[in-house]
């Protein structure tokens, strides 16, 4: 039991730290990108466009201009983020998105680790509970990996 707690604690700590580091690096790059307020990239024909890009709102014009300077505004799948990371130069927003994805899977990884510890310890009841949780989290991750 104590082993499971320590393992989950380490995964949450390092996963959280690494994902925040990725977000900071990506934001640093995105903020340093030229502000092209007249760029038509936002939803322009031929530009990669997520289906749910939408007007952000009142202060939005500012944000939209910032986003317009980026090749893609919103990522909706792991595949899109990986493809953007593979491009050179790397899109700063893709680095932020990879940090977000890493943060998303961190609690999932902690539950998987706890599941393994319970299986090894022969605690079938809690291995089963952890397995149900993993199943529910997998359903959620299917939304991320479906495109």
């Amino acid at each position: 039991m104590r082993r499971a707690e320590i393992l989950a604690s380490r995964i949450l700590f390092w996963g959280g730290l690494l994902s925040i580091a990725l977000m900071v690096i990506g934001m640093w790059g995105a903020w340093g990108a030229p502000d092209s307020s007249t760029s038509p990239t936002w939803g322009a024909p031929g530009a990669p466009q997520a289906p749910h890009e939408r007007a952000v709102g009142g202060a939005a014009s500012t944000l939209e201009r910032t986003v317009a300077a980026q090749p893609r505004a919103v990522y909706t799948s792991v595949g899109q983020v990986v493809a953007a990371l593979a491009q050179r130069p790397v899109e700063p927003l893709a680095i932020v998105a990879s940090g977000i994805l890493l943060l998303l899977v961190t609690p999932f990884a902690s539950v998987v680790a706890v599941f393994v510890v319970f299986v090894v310890a022969g605690d079938r009841k809690y291995a089963g509970v952890a397995a149900v949780l993993i199943g529910a989290l997998l359903v959620s991750l299917l939304f991320v990996g479906r495109r």
Partner: peptide, 20 residues
């Protein structure tokens, strides 16, 4: 939150420039 965020991310509701 990770379970909910997966659904939000897949729907395009997680904007890196805001969420970051």
């Amino acid at each position: 939150a990770a379970a909910s965020a997966g659904v939000f991310f897949g729907r395009g509701d997680v904007h890196p420039l805001i969420a970051g």
